[in-house]
Nucleic acid binder design. Structure first.
Length: 667
RNA sequence: GCCGACUUGGCGCAAUUGGUAGCGCACCGCUCUUGUAAAGCGGGGGUUGUGGGUUCGAGUCCCAUAGUCGGCUCCA
């Protein structure tokens, strides 16, 4: 028997024929192989010249294999319980997996529990995952009862069309995985699948859980039938599963909708309508401080402040093109009917008025209100512009997806020559301001046009120039740059700033869009130095995106522990007993005279109760005073995290508070 | 928009098979008041999202509608 020369984890080895991954790796944490760059089952029989690496269960590839194998077990469990269920696809996803099924009755929570029991049984049975190569025609016969799998076979090789189904029918050979009973050798279940899988079901272990079920369109297309999707999570160990569930719990505690109610910041009265928020006094303070600071910074950076109405006749959005592309996303028009006199003469023309979904056309009209010269440019118009968008009922979500929102919107009119310079300064401005609000970890996304999609208007040449400019500017920041093909607005490409919050989630924040299209549609001009008329370029940018959304993101980022400069109540004075109220009131008036938001809690509650109340309210500074403090003209700090500093001289305490506010420090 | 679940006093929750709506917190009143996350007693407040229907009788069943939640699709 001739020896084969292979490389194992970078080291050359000679092995006998029919050697498999099982022979090469003893560690049970190796669950699959990477052979010449391709993932394979451990049962793969090595060939001469192969370069083989072991895939650790806890590696990203290993976790995907674990989760995808768990998805197969789920599918088997579903079909064991309901043989009529037809299989969709079942890929691994972040933290888990899902599998789609065509079933008559949607899954209930009780169904999920039953399915977990059945999965346990399958896992304990230690079924082997056995790869079998097949071909289109054989597979079609074998899977004649699985219409969705048949459809995928038809798409094989067309990676774009397969989409999430790549786990089933990726490039290369068509394969079926048989689940084999290790005792009898009998195939108990099978699924069209590219693999690889764990060697057997037992290795899935018990660190998995079915999380929820929901409907999902077949192959992600709204025009297709909805299948029932079951989501699960799976981990190498019970501890990791527990940690994951705790992370979900932590995220739920930070949910801005929950904190918004707890801290009395905002609400969505049913009487007003879905996606329409009211800000309560405490939320109002945070919002006003956010806005005030933004105004100040815009003023310092050469922006002009403009104002525009909330409604407009339809022609404005016809010219801009928004009505043609986004009429569905706009509130329907207010129709003013034509009035005709008794002779049939039109006395008053009929008109459609729309709530504005965008501010740009209004700013354009300001631009057009006079002849512009190159000396006027760049012209930077800023507005807290309130817009209304008819978001589909199913997508409205807290403050992050609403139907009425206020954008911190600006439109910059620049010459082609200074466009790049202006973009560079805008992005610096944006990042600096976001940092002031406490977000510090960013990356950029460059959204570009999708070739051939008619949604994108304007010439190829213009798109290339705009995209090239944005990309140079983005690269110059030194931040990580992620491409987003097809993500551009219909009128131009954009850079968006993505921020990571305190628990590592990313949020799309600011967008900066370059637009050659609207200036053309509105026939914008300026007189160049040589006297000729030229077309300016527009830059659209919103820094918060929408104030509502930014408010929501900051709430989750801080988990309601807003830094003192934003906190609705900055200082709460808590006397040990009634007798010390006056002393605290004295300190409070001094703070108040310096603009600090402060109260003294002289309610009937015990001091312990007051500490509890103001801690729950996330008040950054609690000032406690009793005899000891008063006689030393001092005060004791207590902070939201329970820590304390006692006997601080009043003057120092005041300085400390003022400086934290002034410097936007977190405490 | 689609699929599913949910909707009980300000908030969080209870109400066996359809049979007179309860609790905690909060609120109001009184009493109490010294050191770091809930003092005690008493009181008021809901007809169960809204509109229909079934029934002798509905918070509990049916239909519609609004809103919320979880997904899918979408996000200028």
């Amino acid at each position: 028997m001739s020896d084969l020369k292979i490389t194992v984890d970078g080291t050359s080895r000679e092995v006998v024929a029919d050697t498999t991954g099982f022979n090469l790796f003893e560690s049970r944490s190796i669950v699959a192989l990477r052979v010449n760059g391709e993932l394979r089952d451990l049962a793969y029989v090595v060939a001469d010249g192969d370069s083989v690496e072991g895939v650790e269960l806890s590696s990203p590839d290993g976790l995907n294999i674990l989760r995808h194998s768990a998805a197969h077990v789920l599918a088997q469990a579903v079909q064991n319980i309901n043989p009529e269920a037809k299989l969709g696809i079942g890929p691994p996803i972040k933290d888990g997996f899902y599998y789609d099924f065509d079933v008559v009755e949607p899954f209930t929570p009780e169904d999920l529990r039953k399915l977990e029991k059945e999965m346990d049984r399958i896992i304990r049975a230690g079924q082997r995952f056995v790869r079998r190569v097949t071909n289109d025609s054989d597979a079609r016969v074998e899977l004649s009862n699985e219409p969705y799998k048949l459809e995928l076979i038809g798409l094989k090789g067309n990676t774009d069309a397969v989409g999430d189904g790549a786990a089933e029918v990726g490039a290369g050979e068509l394969t079926i995985y048989d689940n084999v009973n290790p005792q009898t050798g009998e195939t108990v279940w099978k699924d069209l699948c590219r693999g690889p899988h764990l060697p057997n079901t037992r290795m899935i272990g018990n660190a998995y859980s079915l999380m929820r079920s929901a409907a999902a369109y077949w192959r992600g297309n709204e025009a297709n039938k909805q299948l029932q999707r079951v989501y699960g999570t799976a981990w190498p160990s019970k501890d990791e599963l527990k940690a994951h569930l705790e992370r979900l719990e932590e995220a739920a505690k930070r949910d801005h909708r929950r904190i918004g109610a707890e801290l009395d910041l905002f609400s969505f009265p049913e009487e007003i309508g879905s996606g329409l928020a009211v800000f309560h006094p405490k939320g109002g303070i945070i919002r006003r401080v956010m806005e005030d600071y933004s105004r100040k910074r815009h003023e310092e950076n050469g922006y002009d402040f403009v104002y525009s109405p909330h409604i407009t006749k339809s022609n404005l959005f016809e010219t801009s093109g928004h009505l043609a592309w986004y009429a569905d996303g706009m509130f329907p028009p207010m129709k003013l009917d034509e009035e005709v006199d008794e002779n049939g003469i039109v006395r008053k023309q009929g008109q459609d008025y729309y709530l504005k979904p965008m501010n740009c056309p209004f700013h354009i009209l300001v631009y057009k209100s006079q002849s512009r010269s190159y000396r006027d440019l760049p012209l930077r118009m800023f507005e807290f512009g309130t817009v209304y968008r008819y978001e589909k009922s199913g997508v409205v979500h807290g403050l992050t997806r609403v139907r009425g929102l206020t954008q911190d919107d600006a439109h910059l009119f620049v010459t082609q020559e200074n466009m790049e310079e202006e973009l560079t300064s805008v992005i610096g401005f944006v990042l600096g301001l976001l940092r002031d609000y406490g977000l510090t970890d960013f990356y950029l996304e460059l959204s570009t046009r999708e070739e051939g999609n008619p949604k994108f208007v304007g010439s190829d040449e213009i798109w290339e120039r705009a995209t090239g400019t944005l990309s140079r500017v983005a690269e110059a920041t030194g931040l990580e740059l992620v491409p987003d093909p097809g993500g551009a607005a219909f009128y131009g490409p954009k850079i968006s700033v993505q921020a990571r919050d305190a628990i590592g989630r990313t949020w799309q924040m600011s967008t900066i869009q370059l637009d050659f299209n609207l200036p053309e549609r509105f026939d914008l001009e300026y007189a160049a130095a040589d006297g000729s008329l030229k077309r300016p370029v527009m830059i659209h940018r919103a820094l918060f995106g929408s104030i509502e959304r930014f408010f929501g993101v900051l709430t989750e980022h801080y988990a309601g522990h807003f830094p003192p400069w934003l906190a609705p109540l900055q200082v709460a004075g808590i006397p040990i007993a009634d007798e010390y109220s006056d002393y605290l009131h004295e300190i409070a008036s001094e703070l108040r005279s310096k603009g600090v938001r402060v109260i003294v809690d002289d309610s009937d509650d015990r001091m312990q109760k007051k500490i509890r109340n103001h801690t729950k309210d996330r008040v950054p500074f609690m000032l406690i005073a009793g005899e000891e403090d008063r006689s030393n003209r001092a005060v004791s700090f207590r902070f939201r995290d329970g820590s304390q500093e006692n006997g601080i001289p009043v003057e120092d305490a005041i300085k400390r508070i003022l400086s934290a506010i002034e410097n936007k420090e977190q405490v």
